[in-house]
Design a protein around this nucleic acid. Sequence first.
RNA 1: GCCAAGAUAGCUCAGUUGGCAGAGCAGCUCACUCGUAAUGAGCAGGUCUUCGGUUCGAUUCCGAAUCUUGGCUCCA
Length: 639
Amino acid sequence: MRAAPVMGSRSKVVPRSADGLVESLPAVRPYDKETGFCRSRDARQKRASGTRYAMSTPLPRDEKLKVIRHSASHVMAEAVLRLFPEAKFAIGPSIENGFYYDFELPRPLVADDLGKIEAIMKEILKGKHDFVRKELSREEAKKLFADQPYKLELIEDLPEGETISTYEQDGYLDLCRGPHVVNTAAIHPDAIKLMSIAGAYWRGDEKRQMLTRIYGTAWDSPQALKDYLKLQEELEKRDHRKLGRELDLFHLDDENPGEVFWHPRGWSIYLRIQNYVRQKIKAGGYVEVNTPFVMPKSLWERSGHWAKYQENMFITESEKRQFALKPMNCPGHVEIFKQGIKSYRDLPLRIAEFGSCTRNEASGALHGIMRVRGFVQDDAHIFCTEEQIGSEVVRFCALLKDIYRDFGFGDDRISVKLSTRPEKRIGDDATWDRAEAGLAEACKAGGFEYEISPGEGAFYGPKLEFTLVDALGRGWQCGTMQIDYQLPSAERLNATYVGEDGEKHHPVMLHRAILGSLERFIGILIEQFSGAFPVWLAPEQIAVIPIAPNFHEYASKVADRLDAAGFLAVADLSDGRMNAKIREAQSRKVPYMLVVGQKEQDEDAVSVRLRDGRQMNGMKFADFASYVKEKVDSKSLEL
RNA sequence: GCCAAGAUAGCUCAGUUGGCAGAGCAGCUCACUCGUAAUGAGCAGGUCUUCGGUUCGAUUCCGAAUCUUGGCUCCA
């Protein structure tokens, strides 16, 4: 979900656009006709040359914003230079919603500094300075940036023959390809805001210098900035950590980082999602198993995890033997596959598990319930022949679509990436060719268009990654489908089946998940629905509210009958007044509130207040029950 | 793990230029026969994250640890 950075553009720049404010953009960016991907480079991508980025047709405004943002980063650099004349400059690209610039500074920044820098920026912007482009030779550039080690490194790494250019505004000179606005007047001083300070490794490499990164946001009008800040507020309101506490779904304990304590309401959602998936995969031809949380070092050595994944595993010991908490379920499933003799007639064998995994994630990577150390995957491994890969992938795509749709994510909310062979890999190229081509073809046959992430595959095979796009346009990677020839091989866990020819063969293993982890998926749902879950998932579907203590008895009778009919209904018999009870139920985001008094009691009816404020008064009890049943059964997103 | 910023009542936050710690909401008690987003009154609630240091005195200043947040790296 990242915009292609402007820094990556290699294009020549033409001086002036029609409105005179933004340089015209190159008509054609380097473009690969065969794949339809634009080529651009990005420092974050480890300088892999020829890295390709998918490009959706850019709106002119998007391009304009990129130019504004990139120019704002130069203005910020100028402001920082005024404050810290000895600052060293790294890179300052435009990013989604804004820009950043990385600096090496003589001291850490404090919150006050951001305000100061922003004030200087505004002053610079008001000065109406031109951005002046100059092209120069490599030698000239090196001389010019002699005291800027990061710039020098960038110059060194520019390919032979590359045009080297600088941009200068108000006396601040920076190495840059452009394009930029022609004058700082193109950036409204009230349409920019500095957001935060963060550390970032030079060139994204954790072994290199840690720089100070300042993030800012920039827009083409003060109103656009306001809208953006408002959206940020909206995001805060939806934050699953906040809602998780407010709705009493779960808690996280500071003493036990990265592990979720599910409260009754949260667990109720969890179980319904799990049982839903359980029923779907059963219908999809999977068998469900369960494998141990703790498994011996010897197994992890054979599987390769001990060598490749050890630092992410919690290791424990008993009677001088070492064990590890499982970070993945695959070896366990291979162990099950290996019990007894398998025939080609048993394939494909689809082994599923709600696998409880524990990974020792870096403390800084933890985030609410989205990124934790203990989580459960809706995992499965499909053991099949090479010929069966295609049909299995197609089948998987159908199941995934079906499940995502029930959670409100239609086809237009799913994006797919095909990750191809990485540099460090095992297996021969012919196998990789077959695996990649097969996966690509099956993905299309499964009804998905995909983008390619070159070199992002697992070391043992290519993979498909399925990303959900939520109500606010954010992407969450959930589903995955990976082809693995290695783990079942003789060198690893040595799984075999007897083929038609009577010989032993190694099956191919497909690692796949749809929700990814239940914890993360529920976090996504909380944010997607702002905690207002669809009826079929709501932890409390119906709150029965008597208008006065006289009607407590009728209220509990209504709740009991609804409960017996399989709904999650609670009668609020507390001391409070009706209005307060409605308010409380509303803040618990209960879909249906039943207000009951004399009228309802006389007619065996309920007056329904929906979460969205609508009312359906004087509904017969039986009518209401069937109304809700329909919503639950159809997994309706509507009330 | 790395960089930076934080940690005060169950929650959201105020506060002390170093001198007995504050509010709103939630909780508890009592009263209230009430029709679609807060009835009123009262009570209780904190070793100011932890451990060291400076000081007559530290919640406040300094150091360290733990955790959280925002990034980086990684990733379900």
